[in-house]
Amino acid sequence: MTEFFLMDGHGAYVWSAYGITLAVLILNVRLARAKHRSALQRARELAAQAEAPRKQPTVRRLQ
């Protein structure tokens, strides 16, 4: 088992390559999800704004 992780002295190179690639994959999944979620949240806020009854007068006074 130890032999497998040492990779004949090349373990540090092989495992860092696989480790960084895995980390980048996970990061990309999270980034894509975060973007999707924040966009939906923004859309929800916009929808709530549009639904809220307007209290301000629609005609603004000139200043």
Binding site: A32, K35, H36, A39, A43, A47, A48, A50
Partner: peptide
Amino acid sequence: LLLRRLQGEIVEREGDARWIRELVGAG
């Protein structure tokens, strides 16, 4: 990853389009 990112981008760009409002559950 591309399609998931694209979905976020579409929602961002479509803003308050009617189908987005229905999507997020607002009447």
